[in-house]
Design a protein around this nucleic acid. Structure first.
Length: 531
RNA sequence: GGGCGGAUGGCGAAGUGGCUAACGCUGUGGUCUGCAAAACCACCAUUCACCGGUUCGAGUCCGGUUCCGCCCUCCA
């Protein structure tokens, strides 16, 4: 596999420190709010990378930190009148909900700044002892000039930076570019004891200390957003390498930004979209798909239309899953040697699988890999169009192709199962409604049949008539109560037309589904039978 | 001002000098269908911001021009 290394500015063959093992550190969020879509991009990108490396047989150690001690958190906690550490803990907790929705696998460890004070203080002490840092009035600064090679990652020299500096120069610092390792506590701020008095760590030190602690002196891949290159990652290198004397990171990978109207989405610009707000309007798998449908280093412009397009595109892939499932229903595939068309299918899918892998091997090109996945989907659909469920060879061929298709979808994490809680009951009720509609169509009562379809459509349920019956599809589960309301209305209609067979059918099949229907003078009422 | 990256059809987006410029969305025609949807089949960029150059051959390499984004300040 080749990856683009920010440090060298080109794609390099991935050679891990130890064969078949990858150590990855990804910069996680500063927890002062719910995460926004921009935060979600690296999560999804690097989670997908992780899945792919595992797929390729690597043992992956994946660490993602939380920065839970920070100026912004302190500011926010003042505004809200809350304890800063509790505020951060709250958003860490909420982070996991958002991440789970996006199908992000938990990291092997999620270290937090607040729990690594001893490690951080020790690291700073060593930096001072080695001459890479100095103390001024309870603050400790990193002496940038002492670290030769500073600026290598971001491609700039110390002189450039000093020349173009827009920052106010703190007179106490030896040089404008020096950055804080430790900040003396101000009243009301969270603080810890240290050899320089009470205070808290600067922004960059936590990442190098925790990365080294969990992954060793040299790690394979360090990931994060583009904007972290400078100063965050530049400073991490300076700290870690001054400390250990060894190369800190072999491959630096940075994702591009999400923009809104071609403007960077960021908390400071205020044009950000919280992930959970987006997830209220679009399914999580569509959001995930959208985030990897573009190469990770390219900018990604956000608007609802793009998410809608992603939803439809992903829907095409999931339709294949649905069609396969339907095709396999009630049939189990036997081991049959494929021939003819079946062989062609399996050969084509295997070839496309190789293309998929080749795409990801080339700097993790998920956009290209998805292209292969669509072609696999297309091949399977095409085969299914003329396949017969009772033919053993068709079953075998489809089973094999579908297995690969699902496997590759899993590598990208885009096949997320919808919530299953009330769904079982809902599906049964839908089946009954389907049967009624089926009867109506047999009776050529198209008005009723269309009425039912329109009702379902209004609830976001798509009904599709096939030769074998009616199939229902929905993005999010409909409300059971609304379905029942409709079913009861239908039933009362049948009753008033003295179509008792249909009316009784509804009641009987509902009972079988665990729902009891009772007639009262005011109308019917329903309840779920106790188990 | 300094550094980095980008400009591909109606839209999004791949494209590792050389088969007919992937793939998705949209659109058009057809098959299927009571209607519809889904699926299937077919079609939809002589052209890759512009100008030069290298080469037998360039969207792909080099130089220049225009426009755009990002970083240099907290930020994924």
């Amino acid at each position: 596999m080749r990856v683009y290394n920010t440090l060298s500015g080109r794609k390099e063959e991935l050679e891990t420190l130890e064969p078949n093992q990858v150590k990855i550190y990804v910069c996680g969020p500063t927890t002062y709010n719910y995460i926004h879509l921009g935060n979600a991009r690296p999560l999804v990108v690097f989670d997908s990378l992780r899945r792919y490396l595992i797929y390729q047989g690597y043992k992956v150690t994946y660490i993602q930190n939380f920065t839970d001690v920070d100026d912004k958190i302190i500011k926010r906690s003042r505004e809200k009148g809350e304890n800063a550490l509790e505020l951060a803990a709250h958003y860490i907790n909420e982070y996991f909900k958002d991440a789970a929705a996006l199908n992000i696998l938990p990291a092997d460890a999620h270290p937090q700044v607040s729990r690594h004070m001893d490690d951080i203080i020790k690291a700073i002490s060593i930096l001072i002892a080695k001459g890479f840092a100095y103390e001024v009035d309870g603050d400790v600064y990193y002496r940038v000039r002492a670290f030769k090679g500073y600026g290598r990652l971001s491609g700039r020299s110390l002189e450039d930076m000093l020349a173009g500096a827009r920052v106010e120069v703190d007179e106490r610092k030896e040089e404008a570019a020096d950055f804080a390792l430790w900040k003396a506590a101000k009243p009301g701020e969270p603080s810890w004891d240290s050899p320089w008095g009470r205070g808290r760590p600067g922004w960059h030190i936590e990442c190098s200390v925790m990365a080294n602690k969990y992954l060793g002196d040299t790690i394979d891949i360090h990931g994060g957003g583009n904007d972290l290159i400078f100063p965050h990652h530049e400073n991490e290198i300076a700290q870690a390498e001054a400390l250990t004397g060894k190369p800190f990171v072999r491959y630096w990978m940075h994702n591009g930004f999400i923009t809104v109207n071609s403007e960077k989405m960021s908390k400071s610009l205020g044009n950000f979209f919280l992930l959970r707000d987006v997830l209220e309007r679009f399914p999580a798998d569509a959001v995930r798909f959208y985030l990897i449908a573009t190469h990770y280093r390219s900018p990604l412009d956000f608007d609802d239309g793009k998410l809608e397009e992603a939803r439809k595109a992903l829907g095409r892939l999931k339709t294949t899953l649905l069609l396969v499932n339907e095709f396999q229903q009630g049939n189990h595939s036997l081991k049959v040697k494929p021939e003819g068309e079946a062989l062609n299918l399996n050969q084509a899918v295997t070839d496309l699988q190789q293309e998929f892998i080749a795409a990801l091997d080339d700097d993790f090109n998920t956009a290209r890999a998805l292209g292969s996945l669509f072609e696999i989907s297309h091949r399977i659909n095409n085969y299914l169009a003329s396949a017969r469920p009772d033919r053993a060879m068709d079953q075998a061929a489809v089973a094999e192709a579908a297995a690969i298709f699902k496997e590759l979808g899993e590598v990208l994490g885009i096949f997320i199962d919808r919530q299953q809680d009330e769904t079982a009951g809902i599906d049964k009720v839908l089946d009954i409604i389907a049967a009624i509609r089926h009867f109506a169509r047999q009776e050529r009562d198209y008005q009723l049949a269309d009425d039912i379809r329109d009702f379902l459509g209004a609830m976001g349920i798509v009904s599709e008539d096939t030769t074998g019956g009616t199939r229902f599809r929905y993005e999010s589960p409909p409300k059971l109560s609304l379905l029942m309301e409709k079913l009861i209305a239908l039933r009362s209609n049948f009753k008033s037309r003295k179509q008792y067979a249909q009316a009784d059918y509804i009641r009987d099949s509902l009972q079988q589904a665990g729902i009891i229907l009772e007639d009262t003078r005011e109308g019917a009422r329903w309840k779920i039978a106790e188990a």
